[in-house]
């Protein structure tokens, strides 16, 4: 299978690989996928409690090159956005940006799910 240049770029030099302390109050963690399906993404956001802006993001992904690229891209995109703005990121935008073939669309769906799960986790632990 031929990969797009952007997928290869994110695979070779993934952005924001790593982990935050998931128990920290200003961190939201999304863990989506399943090992038996061949992809698991962990995406974490660090939120400014005052502005509700996502100031930093990290990911770790078990999955194919497209899954790694999708989550790497997702961390780039959420940084600097408010959590409401980040909620509106659509998987189709990831598909377009990375030129994912139809068989890899599920990777982008998973990345969108990971963003939403991370935000939901943050919100659930920071309810007013």
């Amino acid at each position: 299978m031929a990969y797009s240049e952007k997928v290869i770029d994110h695979y070779s030099e993934p952005r924001n690989v790593g982990s935050f302390d998931k128990s920290a109050a200003n961190v939201g963690t999304g863990l989506v996928g399943a090992p038996e399906c061949g992809d698991v993404m962990k995406l974490q956001i660090q939120v400014d409690p005052e502005t509700k802006e996502i100031v930093d993001a990290k990911f770790k992904t078990f999955g194919c090159g497209s899954a790694i690229a999708s989550s790497s891209l997702a961390t780039e995109w959420v940084k600097g956005k408010s959590i409401d703005e980040a909620m509106s990121i659509q998987n189709t935008e990831i598909v377009e940006e990375l030129s994912l073939p139809p068989v890899k669309i599920h990777c982008s769906v998973l990345a969108e799910d990971a963003i939403k799960a991370a935000i939901a986790d943050y919100k659930s632990r920071n309810e007013d």
Partner: peptide
């Protein structure tokens, strides 16, 4: 493995079979 959440979990002592995975 540096970027594998599973490897990290195993190294942290998590038994992966006990994790509630979200299927997609």
């Amino acid at each position: 493995r540096e970027m594998s959440p599973l490897y990290e979990m195993v190294k942290d002592g998590v038994d992966l079979s006990t994790v509630q995975w979200s299927s997609h």
